[in-house]
Computed example of a mutant assay.
Amino acid sequence: MNSTFEKDNNASGPIGIFDSGYGGLTVFKEIHRILPQYNYIYLGDNARVPYGTRSFQTVYEYTKECVFKLFDLGCNLVVLACNTASAKALRTIQQQDLPPGKKILGVIRPTTESIDQYTKTNKIGILATQGTVLSDSYKIEINKFHPKIEVFQHACPFWVPLVENNEIDSLGAHYFVKNDIEQLLTQSKEIDTIVLACTHYPLLLPIIEKYTPQGIQILAQGELVALSLADYLQRHLEIEKKCSRGGDLQFYTTDDPRAFEEKAEIFFGQKVHAANIKV
């Protein structure tokens, strides 16, 4: 496999966007809005979702398989538009598995690097899946960049199913969102910024805003990740030159493409055409 990568080391290719399912489309939407000139391939591992409750080893293996599939499809740069994959798999893949000339980025660092620009009390809340919370990735990364900031976390296990079943304005959604926000805020009365550390959560934003006290900022990751990617490409021209241009968008799923297309429109904001792919 590596010999193929080495042979095609200088060939340009699309930017790969990976997620365990649909949520990464909210990040991809912002990346495409800010950087529309590039070609992209999105891969959703819908057949094996959810990742949030799986072990570190399983998430690592699944993520690696999908990332290498994107490499096979010609991508030189892959963005893990998934908090769980970024928390449980990114570092290991970067350190152990990357073929020559290939790069992989996550969504956690772009968020943690800039968090000090938003909080005045140095107390922030993280709403995420159980896997992301248990990984402590946000605490570790924020402490690395901003040791004065205190991080409070709360897992929201019902939010992803609510979004994926299009129950985003149901009574159940209102109940769980209100309850989870209250539980987070009981950890500290000084929290002034909440990070939505799951790419599904922006679809619940109207309800989240309803139950979040005034004066508390709510940060979705899409724009932060997109701006960080734009900056990364400006600083790493050797990578930017290997990202093909033309605005072509391709969508792949490991599950039923018709079902993917129906839900993807909710996340991406426009109709998409998808194909099935084996990893």
Rank of each mutant, 00 (worst) to 15 (best):
residue 149 I to H: 00
residue 194 I to G: 00
residue 173 A to V: 09
residue 136 D to V: 04
residue 220 A to Y: 08
residue 176 F to L: 13
residue 168 I to H: 00
residue 197 A to K: 02
residue 138 Y to V: 01
residue 165 N to P: 06
residue 203 L to K: 10
residue 152 F to L: 03
residue 173 A to H: 02
residue 220 A to I: 11
residue 164 E to M: 02
residue 219 L to E: 02
residue 211 Y to T: 01
residue 143 N to D: 13
residue 209 E to D: 11
residue 220 A to K: 11
residue 196 L to D: 02
residue 142 I to S: 00
residue 190 E to D: 15
residue 165 N to E: 15
residue 139 K to R: 14
residue 144 K to R: 14
residue 142 I to R: 07
residue 198 C to S: 09
residue 217 Q to C: 09
residue 181 I to P: 07
residue 147 P to A: 12
residue 214 Q to P: 12
residue 216 I to Q: 06
residue 212 T to K: 08
residue 207 I to F: 04
residue 167 E to W: 15
residue 184 L to R: 04
residue 138 Y to K: 07
residue 163 V to G: 00
residue 189 K to D: 13
residue 165 N to M: 08
residue 173 A to L: 10
residue 205 L to G: 06
residue 205 L to C: 11
residue 215 G to Q: 09
residue 166 N to Y: 12
residue 163 V to K: 01
residue 156 C to W: 03
residue 136 D to A: 13
residue 174 H to Y: 09
residue 179 N to H: 12
residue 196 L to R: 07
residue 162 L to E: 01
residue 161 P to A: 05
residue 158 F to A: 08
residue 149 I to Y: 02
residue 195 V to M: 01
residue 207 I to M: 09
residue 166 N to D: 14
residue 195 V to D: 06
residue 166 N to M: 11
residue 143 N to V: 09
residue 151 V to G: 01
residue 180 D to N: 15
residue 174 H to W: 06
residue 206 P to Y: 05
residue 142 I to H: 05
residue 137 S to I: 03
residue 182 E to P: 08
residue 196 L to T: 01
residue 191 I to E: 00
residue 150 E to A: 12
residue 201 Y to N: 04
residue 207 I to H: 00
residue 182 E to F: 14
residue 172 G to F: 14
residue 161 P to Y: 11
residue 207 I to Y: 03
residue 188 S to K: 12
residue 147 P to D: 03
residue 175 Y to P: 06
residue 206 P to C: 07
residue 198 C to Q: 06
residue 212 T to E: 01
